[in-house]
Design a protein around this nucleic acid. Structure first.
Lengths: 338, 338
DNA sequence: GAGCTTTATGTAATCGTTTTCAATAACAGC
DNA sequence: GCTGTTATTGAAAACGATTACATAAAGCTC
């Protein structure tokens, strides 16, 4: 409590233990010290309640033992799950994680990239928007970067992503198998993820000889709800109502469910619905929502593994880890007869 | 890219601009410098691509410009929302936030408290478990702490919390008004929050002359689901089925909905359900779930305000900000006749 | 124009560590 | 007992910034 007491440092510990500061430092980092002195120092540390100053340590030792993690939306359970995996792995390796949230906003991305440089992070795991991704190749960063969730086709960076085209195709195939033929698609307009999912959606529909009709919206529930409402109103007028809609992430999924509810459409009776990310609540709404489940923990772990291997050997060829999602079929795609 | 190039520092900028390092530093911190030199330095900064080293800066200036935020579960939307508010406020004040996640685990709490000391944070915002809260008075931290969501009755720390008894009473009153008379309660067993909500629940029931029957479980959906299933089975045998159940947070809420679904109980026909936290999905499950909405953004902002005021005047009396929740009535408490 | 204040700048000390380097002690080999 | 090697230890030099202090120049006042 007393404010005048200066924070105690390694020097105080050294005095208390009757040794030099070098010895204290060596004890702290498990260096070569005789057992006798080691014990004395450890006692002194306890007695003084010494806590190392990380800034000083990082400055002198020139490594931050910190990795950065920049995600686009921390409220998205996909990213919270990934961040947990990253944190666990980092902690095991004795590292800290700086978690930052960009809201899909390129300016914030730029700002946080700057911050990462100033913090002298050891490495960065990053889920960039399309805009930033395009410029990232040109940026010169002083640390390795692993992209997650989004990535360029053949980049300068390691990355770990879902097999998005395949996952989207999984949904389309499932819908087709359930008898749906007019399958609308709603996709986010900021991430490469959405682009890839759209591609898979289109390809799968083509393979079934079906017509694709897709729209792109900002990745919010509100935008999705509004767009779907507008869309279905138009469709109703033109007599071309879709019997199913698939969306590219869970926020959009929420918007679609909400729109169906306010429009008085039954799921799946009037409209089947399928989307991405097996969040806890998807099981609970309506008859349960059919979704793609991503291996979230694996994604985080893989990112850390790539990062560590890159740190180990900066010269190795860049790699792209592609993981598969699985389709969790629920009542929201119950079938046309149902 | 080239590895041998040493990171450029303030010294290099000074040489490039033909001034002393002191001048560069002054330009960087808006100190008194002539316009001519300022321009030269700014050019040099751009030319060299200089990025300050935060560790060095923090070490020398002796303030970290960093505030810590320790929450119990980052996946809980309540905390993600609060953390956003905190981050925004911190950013406006030119500060960084270190966000940590304890999983309601006292060991992790202790570890992160240690980390905060080592990072020499300017202040800490903390949602502790009951176990840690009890010991926190004795701990000596070198920085001010503001407790959120949970707090001791008359502590050494500033805090901002929901008026939990009142909020719980709000739910009970609403249920009572809808005609429910056997109102069961399910509460988490790690936080003081749950204790307070239980108190409010009990008091409100007593005021209505009703019998309270409450149980405590670990704060997970699984635990809640299992407990509710067991509970209702017993109740059915003894012929004393509750007609409504209220729970103390959104995870438990999910568990209860799940249990109702697997037991084949209609909501609200067979069992009314009400809980805490107006998350986006609560609107979508079943007939919509009746919940208490917390002023999440306000809570985060208030915490930052308290923290800054405390930093301003360390001697001021500790304060406790109590905010009110509102009851969002939905179909899940539709009424006994419905 | 002497004396005093203000302003801009540079020099060097400093923050709390780690790490280099030299010094000492202990011990083996001969 | 002398030399070479190996362990411990301490003194002092970094790390990259900020800032206290000194200095010089310029602007006042009378």
């Amino acid at each position: 409590m007393s404010d005048s007491v200066k924070a105690i440092g390694i020097k105080d510990v050294a005095r208390e233990a009757g040794v030099s500061v070098a010895t204290v430092s060596r004890v702290l980092s498990n260096g070569p010290v005789s057992d006798a002195l080691r014990a004395r120092v450890e006692d002194a540390v306890r007695a003084t309640g010494y806590r190392p100053n990380l800034s000083a340590r990082r400055l002198r030792s020139q490594h931050s033992q910190t990795i950065g993690l920049i995600v686009s939306d921390i409220r998205n359970p996909f990213f919270t799950a990934v961040s947990r995996a990253v944190e666990d792995a980092a902690f095991q390796a004795g590292m800290r994680v700086i978690l930052c949230n960009t809201d899909e906003n390129p300016e914030r991305e730029a700002m946080y990239l700057r911050l990462m440089q100033e913090e002298r992070v050891t490495g960065l795991i990053f889920a960039p928007t399309r805009a930033t991704l395009a410029q990232l190749d040109r940026a010169d960063l002083d640390f390795p970067v692993v992209l997650i969730d989004r990535s360029a086709p053949a980049g300068r960076f390691d990355s770990v992503v879902l097999d998005n085209p395949q996952a989207a195709a999984l949904l389309v195939d499932h819908l087709h198998g359930q008898g749906y033929r007019r399958i609308a698609g709603l996709f986010g307009n900021t991430s490469t993820t959405a682009v890839e999912r759209h591609a898979g959606y289109q390809a799968a529909l083509a393979a079934h000889g079906l017509h694709a009709e897709a729209r792109f919206v900002p990745p919010t529930a509100e935008a999705a709800e509004a767009e779907i409402a507008r869309w279905l109103a138009e469709a109703r007028r033109s007599g071309a109502m879709p019997d199913a809609v698939m969306v590219s992430n869970s926020l959009l999924l929420m918007g679609v469910v909400k729109a169906a509810r306010t429009l008085g459409l039954a799921i799946p009776g009037d409209l089947a619905v399928a989307g991405f990310d097996n969040e806890p609540w998807t099981e609970l709404v309506g008859p349960g929502l059919t979704v793609i489940e991503q291996p979230v923990h694996e994604i985080g772990r893989a990112a850390m593994t790539l990062l560590f291997e890159r740190l180990d050997d900066p010269e190795r060829a860049t790699r792209k880890v592609v993981l598969s999602g699985t389709c969790v079929a629920r009542g929201s795609t119950g079938g046309v007869s149902g």
